[in-house]
Design a protein around this nucleic acid. Structure first.
Lengths: 202, 202
DNA sequence: CGAACAAGTGAACTGCGGTTCAGTGCTTCG
DNA sequence: CGAAGCACTGAACCGCAGTTCACTTGTTCG
């Protein structure tokens, strides 16, 4: 039994894998998906190109994981806002504000997650991402309708509408020009008012 | 002066160009942008690959034109609905219904126009497309707010929200599965109600 | 007709980035 | 130690679709 994967080795392995994922995440946040070649990711992680393929079967799998992780953070933040205290209107507003503030804080990442052209494999993650948002709002709406806090409506359609509205309203300022990050201050309250109104709150 | 481009020749030239554009349009409507190689378009148009490059500088320019034309038809249809008679709510509803019905009638084309990953050059056309829709709704909203038919709101944000909501609500059924074309009957009225409510109509 | 040139052809080229793999050096454990 | 086997390396490979271009075919007009 001349070789066994020791704990220390496994740890280094995991560290390398993590370094690759984090390098990829950083690069996506800086330059978008289009600016991320495997060679570049490897260099940023301090490993050789081939090493990436010891941890991931192909590029798509790597970035699917990157997107999944990045996405989960965003969804969790919004879910937390949805679970907060207050009326439906207040919670919806908290969701929109949370989503928008985070997007403007990392605009390129947000654009990559929401709208940038990506491989089918990664696109699948994005669909899941949007579905997760839809579910948050759909549940919020369904509960509120049942409780009589909102007028009758199709929660799925309303939720899709809300997600689409948020995405569209943010993609416009995110995509135009290079001076992203300058938060269009007026946009967020206006968007949030739109969303609250769209659900028939108050 | 041994050669001059005669009217008959010019006509044939124009016909070829048109054939290429129409072939590209048909292929996009059938298989999406991803399924459209230059060679395939050329074959469908009954010309050689190189001929495409006598009419367009590159693939992006060809498809930018295809998208522009396809887009214009859609935008015109919605603009006509917006210009129709009736209250704001009725006209908005007409816009949503027009948009949705047309999308479900040619689902693959709609998906390509709205959401499929495309080249940056073509993406630019898509942005123009969305901007055109935004303008229609922004004007509708601005006028209605001025006339006191709608509550005060930022017309640009509201318009973006409406466009995003329509796109998202339709992309979901358009993208899922291969059995596109089966119109989810309940979705359109629900979406239309959502949009009308989002603007604060009635 | 035939000289001059445009339009059309399609096989070959090209550039790019994902992927591979033979070679190197490290880790394990008897 | 040292044999066995793994992780790592990075230059070379490869596939693909957009693009090119030497050549063929068609058109004009003195």
């Amino acid at each position: 039994m001349p070789y066994r994967r020791t704990a220390a080795v496994q740890e280094r392995l995991d560290a390398t894998r993590t370094a690759i994922v984090e390098a990829a995440h950083t690069l996506v946040a800086e330059r978008g998906y289009a600016g991320c070649s495997v060679a570049l990711v490897a260099a940023a992680a301090g490993v050789a190109t081939g090493t990436v393929y010891r941890h991931f079967p192909d590029k798509g799998a790597l970035f699917a994981e990157v997107f999944r992780a990045a996405t989960q953070r965003e969804v969790d933040a919004v879910a937390a806002a949805a679970a907060g205290p207050g009326t439906v209107a207040e919670r919806v507003e908290a969701c929109v504000t949370t989503f928008a503030r985070r997007a403007f804080r990392a605009p390129r990442l947000a654009w990559a997650l929401i709208a940038e052209p990506v491989d089918p494999q990664v696109e699948a993650e994005r669909l899941a991402y949007r579905a997760a948002y839809r579910d948050i709002f759909a549940r919020l709406v369904a509960d509120a309708v049942a409780a009589g806090e909102l007028p009758p409506q199709d929660p799925q359609v309303s939720a899709a509408g809300v997600v689409g509205a948020m995405a569209e309203a943010l993609v416009v300022p995110l995509h135009v020009g290079d001076d992203m990050g300058r938060a269009p201050v007026g946009t967020v309250p206006a968007l949030s008012a739109f969303v609250v109104r769209s659900l028939g709150a108050r």
